[in-house]
Structure formats: C-alpha cells, structure tokens
C-alpha cells in the first residue's frame, strides 16, 4: 500500500519548496538568457520572479510560505552587498583622471532623472507609497530593496522599478547614445551605470571593458550616494 497523495502533498508543503522553486526558475532563466544572446528583457531575475509570481497567484502556495522558505537567499543579500566594496575598490584608480567629470555627471545627471521620475509620479497623482518608492530608481536592486521600506516605500515595488529601468535602459541606451553622438567610452559607461544599474552594466561590458568599468563604478557610486542621502532627506 503506497501513499501517493500524502507523499506528494508532503513535497508541496515542504519548507524547502520555495527555495527549490527559486533556484530552479533562476537556473532556467539563466539558460534562457544565455541562449537568447543576453536579451535584457529575458534577464534571469525577471524570468524567475515572474514565474514564481505566477505560481503563487495560480496555486495555494502563499507568498508568506514561499518567502519563509526562500528567506535563506534573502538573508545572504546583506553581506553580499558589503562585497560590492571590492569591485568599487578595484576600479577606483580609473577615476584618477576622470573623477571631476564622473562626479558631476553622476550627481547632476542622476539627480535630474530621479527628480524627474519622482515629480511625474507625484504630479500624476500616484499614491504616496509609489512616490516614495520612485526615489530608489537609480539605486541598484539589492540596495533599493534594503532602502525602500525606510523611506516609506515598498521593497518589491522598488525591485520592479529598478528592474524596469535596468532592462528598458539597457535596451534603448545604445540608440540614444548614438543619436546624441556620445562616443567617449567612459561617458557611455557612466550613462548606462547611472540610469540602468546592473543590467546596464552588463550591456556596457558588451560595448567594451572601459564602458563596463565605468558603468560598474557609477552603479556603486549612485547607490552609495542615494543610500546615504535619501534616508536623511525623506525620513
């Protein structure tokens, strides 16, 4: 006598289910991403999160039960963000010649995109939560998630916003840069890093190593700047 039903529901109720589903969907997303030739809109996070959302909406697996099971991954995020200091340190000597132009374009360019985005949602009568979350749009996802609740926003919405700018930014940046005749490698990388974070940095690396390094630098710089200033400005 075998207990198929009990055994199967044991798997479905297992505290490891969420972890397994996350790892599997992410791995599938990675394969899909590589097969597609790194199309930004097939970013593994997007594919993985979308399929997990679908599973949660369509089955009786609740987000709470899912998150409890996948929380292990979420908890590692803190120390891994700390590790971002290493690529920042490794690329810092690139700034010796360019630091003034770099800081100005990050602060002014980044500031303009952030204020513009916040202002549009505010004037468009978006809810307070949405307006608050918009402030995180130029911070790399991991840090945006950490920061959003402290400034009256929602972590998951921050993740969605940042993914959107990242993916969309990486898609339109090359044509925009061509249109405005921005051909300096460091300038191209900086534009991608400020506006499109990690997805933009991946795209910048395809354009060249200088672009990639400057994109990574501005991603870290913007994240640090926003994470250090925004909580004081907004709370």
């Amino acid at each position: 006598m075998m207990h198929w039903q009990a055994a199967l529901s044991g798997i479905w109720q297992s505290p490891y289910l969420g972890l397994l589903l996350t790892l599997m969907s992410f791995q599938a997303g990675l394969v899909l991403f590589k097969r597609s030739g790194s199309k930004p809109w097939l970013h593994p996070v997007l594919v993985s999160a979308a399929s997990l959302c679908a599973i949660i909406l369509l089955t009786d697996l609740s987000y709470e039960r899912y998150f409890e099971s996948a929380n292990f991954l979420n908890q590692i995020l803190g120390p891994v963000i700390v590790a971002l200091a290493i690529p920042l340190y490794e690329n810092i000597n690139l700034l010796k010649r360019y630091w003034f132009a770099f800081v100005v374009s990050n602060v002014v360019g980044g500031g303009v995109t952030i204020f513009m985005a916040v202002a549009i949602v505010y004037l468009g009568q978006g809810s307070d939560v949405s307006v608050n979350t918009m402030w995180t749009k130029s911070i790399t996802t991991a840090i945006a998630i950490d920061l959003a609740p402290g400034i009256g926003g929602v972590a998951a919405l921050a993740a969605a916003l940042v993914m959107f700018t990242g993916v969309f930014g990486a898609m339109i940046a090359p044509s925009l840069l061509r249109l405005f005749r921005i051909n300096h490698a460091a300038a191209q990388g900086t534009a991608l890093g400020v506006c499109a974070h990690a997805v933009g940095t991946a795209r910048a690396l395809e354009m060249g190593s200088v672009q990639g390094a400057f994109a990574a630098l501005s991603m870290c710089f913007m994240a640090l700047l926003c994470a250090l200033l925004l909580p004081f400005m907004l709370s």
Partner: peptide, 12 residues
C-alpha cells in the same frame, strides 16, 4: 541577482 529574487516576488 539570485539573492534579490525572493524580495522581488513580493510584488504579488
């Protein structure tokens, strides 16, 4: 990117 998935799914 893998570590940000669980929090992103919170959008549901």
């Amino acid at each position: 990117p893998l570590f940000i998935v669980p929090a992103s799914v919170g959008i549901v």
